[in-house]
Design a protein around this nucleic acid. Structure first.
Lengths: 154, 154
DNA sequence: GAGGATTGGTTGATATTTCAACTACATTCA
DNA sequence: TGAATGTAGTTGAAATATCAACCAATCCTC
């Protein structure tokens, strides 16, 4: 449904913030991705490693994992196939629901995560957490909580 | 250069904010992209249209445009080729520097922008600008300014 | 003004993402 | 039971992005 009536353009200030966000976010993902490349993973793959490492038994159903790392189911299928080829994860058929598939973290995958994590966290700190004033950082958290609510699927 | 010493992990609060950002940003771009699809442009293309529309003569050198919309030069070449096929932009050889190429906005491209803009701005407001508390919004601006500084290329 | 380095941009191969079917299993309900 | 509907995940083709050369023009520097 398209909103009708005179469009309310952004004020100069609102626009400045919006553009700072666009540029900052682009720069940030680019830098983090470049940083992770030395460990042969990219950001989406890293998120998968982290998510699985925190799950019980280090495994998660494909669709749960897809939601957790904000990827489409189809995309996750392909991503996991590549990671499986690289021995970072394994697929295990789910015995109770035979449609289901568990993606499970291998020891190789866990090692990869352990290797990459310190460097990655340091980068996240340097470029994001520690770069921002603590007050603003807290506000940023609230801001994105609000965005998450506003974009709630459905 | 990898930072040495005990890795300083994120505190629970820091992590909460970081993850809220990751999820919120993903949701936001996904929603905006879906919204723009009805006008047959995606977010990166829309940014190109906006940037060109604001440039003198509605044209910009490829490399300037690449910087402005945070795309690699190679990626921009491909993107502009597609947009040229769709008559949204045109390439014009630069007379003074014969290596250079101007990407210029066509009237079709300008029309497309005029059509999409009200709806897009409304979505940006609904999901981002108006969804966030004004104080937090201002803080978010400062935060991303800081990120931009921290990620300054070089 | 003749190399040699830089810059601006493109190319094409490869990798990743998206999109629209499609298969197989589960659940519901009559 | 069994037909209809919904859910889990995959597939393969098409669209897009990345990466490493590459060409051509400009800029230095001697």
């Amino acid at each position: 449904m398209i909103a009708e009536g005179e469009p309310r353009w952004l004020t100069a200030d609102q626009q400045r913030v919006w553009r700072a966000y666009l540029l900052g976010a682009a720069r940030l993902t680019e830098a983090l991705d470049a940083d992770l490349r030395q460990f042969d993973v990219d950001l989406p793959e890293y998120e998968i490693l982290v998510t699985l490492s925190e799950a019980p038994e280090r495994q998660l159903r494909m669709s749960e994992l897809a939601t957790a790392v904000h990827q489409s189911r189809s995309r996750l299928t392909h991503t996991i196939s590549r990671m499986e080829r690289d021995k970072l994860v394994e697929r295990v058929g789910c015995p109770t629901d035979r449609r289901g598939v568990w993606a499970t973290l291998t020891e190789t995958g866990m090692d990869r995560l352990r290797t990459a994590a310190p460097c990655h966290v340091a980068a996240v700190r340097q470029l994001f957490v520690d770069a921002v004033d603590p007050q603003d950082y807290a506000a940023l958290g609230r801001a994105f909580e609000a965005v998450i609510n506003a974009t709630e699927p459905g």
